[in-house]
Design a protein around this nucleic acid. Structure first.
Lengths: 200, 200
DNA sequence: ACTAGTGGATAGTTACGCTATCCATGACTG
DNA sequence: CAGTCATGGATAGCGTAACTATCCACTAGT
């Protein structure tokens, strides 16, 4: 398995210890068999840590959600959100309300404890702290763009038919999507600024 | 300064040692004066580490770019991109070409060593490794959305008039923007899935 | 038969981001 | 103006996270 994925053997052992990988079936006391599923899972772990920068513990939670019997899209998404976001500062009531007003205006239903809502509020708070009050004016444009992204995401997810695939697709799509969007944003910035300013 | 920002004194000393903060002007051998600029800088450091998850070393590079005399937007952006992205795996020639073909089709000029290009290629490589080949079909939708985001970003940046503000605005906008977009994406996903599937 | 490799357990390592302690000195408090 | 407290500066220490190394008994392949 190490040879097939490039992950060092001691690292695989470590993941086994941490419960990220289930032990293979023992054919004898010191010999186990690992199949395609294990290899796939191992690659997923590396993707989550490398691209998504999730901690080992966070990866464990996400994988745990994937393996739970009551496989609900909602549940897996929730765990993902919690894993990705850093639970952050309270404070700045004004920014808080500003963020909620924004969500209400959009008509996006929200639960104040939703990790994504909290993440958004944190960003607004930080922006104000930094004296970049006008940053929030960007949010409408960002939200418009994210609407389009979300439509594409849903299209993508719903194309899959098997439940397991859907859930893994959500996890992979969330992580890789965030990374891809960040990269594309910078490339688009370069393209737009080149067009507008004639810069290189 | 510690009292005004909530950052513990030893931490501030640590940042001073690491060169993230310039020493205040000494009024006497053991008494220094720190002004508004220092406080602002300190808040920026915390924002970059907390929201942007940059390492202390990466923050140092970004701040260094901000402070350089030849203040070019391009330069600061480049440093930001390098700081944000993890320099990652080579390999998978097919994915590499697929990503470049994508960029060419978009008409976005690119330099293969651009960190953002490399980040994008990495994502495509990872997607293929994970067996999610259809993930790349999403990229067009993402790129469309990012076009809109980039237009808004440029509008925002160009509204500022003073050079220093522009550069700090770019840094802040990049970090906070990425975080905001990720959060909005999840909220949009919830809204879209609620509309389409009637889920909660 | 024998070398290389395995599962399992335990201990050690490295990097990072702080924290703690010490010192001599200066600033505010009564 | 004595006494407490905080400061700049330097050095050393701590806690966590993610591995990595070593050991052991054993076994698969040659």
């Amino acid at each position: 398995m190490s040879r097939r994925t490039g992950v060092p053997v001691p690292t695989i052992k470590y993941y086994l210890r941490e419960g990220l990988l289930s032990p293979g079936e023992l054919t004898s006391p010191n010999q186990a068999r690992y199949g395609e599923a294990h290899v796939r899972r191992l690659k997923l772990i590396r993707a989550l840590t490398d691209v998504g920068k999730l901690s080992i513990a966070a990866v464990g939670e996400v994988l745990g959600a994937l393996d739970e019997p009551e496989q609900s899209l909602h549940h897996v998404l929730g765990v993902m959100q919690r894993s990705v976001s850093t639970n952050a500062a309270a404070g700045d009531e004004a920014a808080h309300q500003e963020a909620e007003k924004f969500l209400a205006r959009r008509g996006w239903h929200y639960h104040p404890d939703d990790p994504s809502v909290r993440a958004l509020v944190d960003v607004v708070v930080k922006a104000r702290e930094l004296g970049h009050d006008r940053f929030v004016e960007q949010l409408d444009a960002y939200a418009d763009a994210c609407q389009g992204i979300a439509e594409a995401d849903l299209d993508h997810v719903l194309r899959r038919t098997e439940v397991e695939d859907v859930l893994e697709g959500v996890v992979v799509g969330t992580m890789l999507g965030d990374a891809a969007i960040a990269a594309l944003r910078r490339l688009a910035q370069q393209a737009v600024s080149a067009r507008r300013l004639g810069e290189v």
